[in-house]
């Protein structure tokens, strides 16, 4: 019994060992042909580099991005303040960099938490079906239908001390940061839950899952060993797209004064006093929003490119 595949594999013994990697290298090759996706990857790398260079640049310029200096509000760009200063006389460029760290971090953390919720609920609904499934899907439909922004504002305005947290914690910067991460995660899991449910429904009927069950495998084993690894690619794409949405949520909440609390900068809260900026320093009204815009559009193109690379049916563009 010598099939063609066996012969080929015998001729190239190394081929088999790297089979798993070869799937990814194929995808990488397809991804590289997606111009938007490649460009976004480069842009995102540069953005991260930009945000991470905040501290070194601060040392180099000998500035302190947190100290306000009311004598030098809205200074024009200069050798020390490359993009000028903001309404508190702080260096705009450094605040953009630090703000970016916060915005990106919120984006990633809320996506991981919300995505975790979505993956878990989607897996449970898809795998067990029945009453649990219809309950969870009702819940998902309900959350999708809600006007999320007003709800987020209410959640962001809650008094943490009334929830049993110490007053000290409730007013700390960490609480402000984690509050925003958690509430965004709490509302933005529905897309992933639906996707994971649909993918789980398809995978759980495959014979290898049935075979594992026939051998006595429990639900947890089956879900983690067979279902999850086989639906990981659509999940990666969905997570990517979620990062973009979360960054937008964070920015609008911070902009409205319900997100990251100053003096900690975030791209959203740097536009807090936008009405004033529009007339006095229009450039400052542009920078933070432009960075959000570029980040989110790059993230979305990245997701699109990955979708293209992961989908065997997609033609070359």
């Amino acid at each position: 019994m010598t099939d063609v595949a066996t012969e080929a594999a015998l001729a190239h013994p190394s081929r088999g060992i790297h089979a798993a990697q070869s799937v990814w290298s194929l995808r990488w090759r397809r991804f590289r042909h997606h111009r938007g996706g490649m460009a976004s990857l480069v842009i995102l790398a540069l953005l991260v580099l930009f945000c991470l260079s905040a501290y070194p640049l601060e040392r180099y310029l000998g500035l302190d991005s947190n100290t306000t200096d009311l004598l030098s509000r809205y200074d024009p760009p200069s050798a020390t303040h490359w993009l000028g200063t903001d309404e508190g006389g702080r260096d705009e460029l450094l605040r953009l960099m630090y703000g970016g760290q916060i915005s990106l971090l919120v984006g990633l953390l809320a996506t991981v938490i919300g995505g975790g919720i979505g993956v878990s609920l989607g897996l449970l609904a898809g795998y067990f079906g029945g009453k649990l499934d219809s309950f969870l899907m009702r819940l998902t439909d309900g959350v999708i239908a809600l006007p999320l922004l007003p709800l987020l504002i209410v959640l962001a305005a809650l008094d943490l001390t009334k929830l049993g947290f110490s007053s000290e914690f409730a007013h700390s910067g960490a609480a402000g940061f984690w509050r925003i991460v958690v509430i965004i995660a709490l509302v933005d899991w529905t897309a992933i839950a639906r996707l994971v449910r649909a993918a789980t429904l398809a995978v759980k009927e495959r014979d290898y899952v049935v075979a594992a069950r026939a051998s006595g495998a429990g639900a947890f084993y089956t879900m983690t060993t067979h279902v999850l690894p086989n639906i990981v690619t659509p999940i990666i794409v969905a997570f990517t797209l979620t990062v973009g949405r979360v960054i937008l949520f964070e920015s609008v909440l911070s902009f409205l004064g319900f997100g990251i609390v100053p003096p900690t900068p975030s791209w959203g809260n740097m536009l807090n006093n936008a009405q004033e900026l529009v007339t006095t320093a229009p450039a400052l009204a542009i920078y933070p929003g432009l960075l959000i815009f570029i980040t989110v559009i790059a993230v979305n193109f990245l997701g699109d490119g990955m979708q293209h690379a992961f989908d065997p049916r997609s033609e070359r563009r």
């Binding site: 973009g244 902009f255 529009v278 009204a285 815009f293 989110v296 559009i297």
Partner: peptide, 13 residues
């Protein structure tokens, strides 16, 4: 893509 990626408040600005 620009439409789904733009922060609405910034677009307004």
């Amino acid at each position: 893509f620009a439409g789904i990626s733009v922060p609405v408040f910034w677009l307004a600005l």
